[in-house]
């Protein structure tokens, strides 16, 4: 089956799901794919602000499900890529506003028009997560090299497998190579040993991420920063290119002097 619907989830909050969704969506669009990113976090929407599209929302996915607009009216076009759209969610409703069947129906509509539908799952394992999981063809679990997010990732991987969804792949986010080297932080190998799940990307901690969300411009749009490179590599792996997994390197003082971030 063609893996069109990709759900980005994690269990634990604050590990970088929304940033990951925005950047992978944008990177796929820059590769010439027709992409929609869908905010799955009803009541706590943030994909719009991270992408800098918050001022353009008129309708959202709940309006569509409840028949107040057509799907096309709820889609916001991101002009920075040829074919990139945001489907925002409602800010003043709660998770019960949409059920998993409706989510599957929305995605079935989107499948007709788009190459990829990337869903930003809310944290937790309750209905919001079940909604995001229901239409998924592929699941990306984001984790940080830190005990609580790794433990939650294991729980989520178990739940995804018990729903017979998948394949499940792991994104290690915010890795700090220098601290791994000093054995102060779990390494990629440690996390692989513990979770025994395939890793699709390793995103290093990167100062450029905070300034990119400050501005509402995902790093893949204009960056040569380490995170931008990592996200572009993940997008290329998703479309089936063979991009070897590389370990982020520690940056030396002279690299920092030359300025690796914008």
């Amino acid at each position: 089956m063609e893996e069109k619907v990709i759900t980005v989830t994690s269990g634990k909050g604050g590990v970088g799901k929304t940033t990951t969704t925005a950047n992978i969506g944008a990177a796929l669009a820059l590769l010439g794919k027709k992409v929609v990113v869908l905010d799955g976090d009803i009541g706590l929407r943030n994909l719009d602000i991270v992408m800098g599209l918050e001022n353009r929302i008129v309708y959202d996915v709940v309006d569509y499900v409840e028949g107040r607009c057509r799907l096309r009216q709820a889609l916001i076009r991101d002009k920075r890529a040829p074919e990139l759209y945001l489907l925002p969610t409602a800010q003043t409703r709660d998770k019960t506003a949409i059920n998993p069947e409706q989510m599957v129906q929305v995605c079935d509509e989107l499948r007709k028009e788009f190459d990829y539908i990337i869903i930003d799952s809310p944290a937790g394992i309750e209905q919001g997560f079940q909604n995001a999981l229901a239409p998924a063809d592929r699941v990306l679990v984001v984790t940080n090299p830190e005990v609580s997010s790794v433990r939650d990732a294991d729980r989520v991987i178990g739940l995804v497998e018990s729903h017979e969804k998948g394949p499940v792949q792991l994104i290690i986010n915010r890795l700090i190579p220098a601290r791994v080297k000093k054995q102060e932080m779990l390494s990629t190998q440690d996390i692989m040993d513990v979770l025994s799940t395939e890793i699709i990307g390793i995103v290093p901690e990167d100062e450029a991420i905070l300034s990119s969300s400050n501005r509402g411009t995902p790093v893949v749009f204009n960056g040569k920063s380490p995170a931008a490179i990592a996200y572009r590599d993940i997008a290329r792996r998703l479309i089936g290119e063979n991009v070897p997994l590389t370990q982020p390197q520690t940056t030396s003082w002279w690299q920092r002097l030359l300025g690796k971030t914008e």
């Binding site: 005990v147 433990r151 178990g158 791994v180 054995q183 932080m185 440690d190 513990v194």
Partner: peptide
């Protein structure tokens, strides 16, 4: 023992029980 090593061992133990 390094803290990363301790983290890994603690995770492996707790995950056995979680699973």
């Amino acid at each position: 023992r390094s803290s990363a090593e301790t983290a890994k061992q603690r995770l492996q133990l707790v995950l056995v029980h979680d699973r």
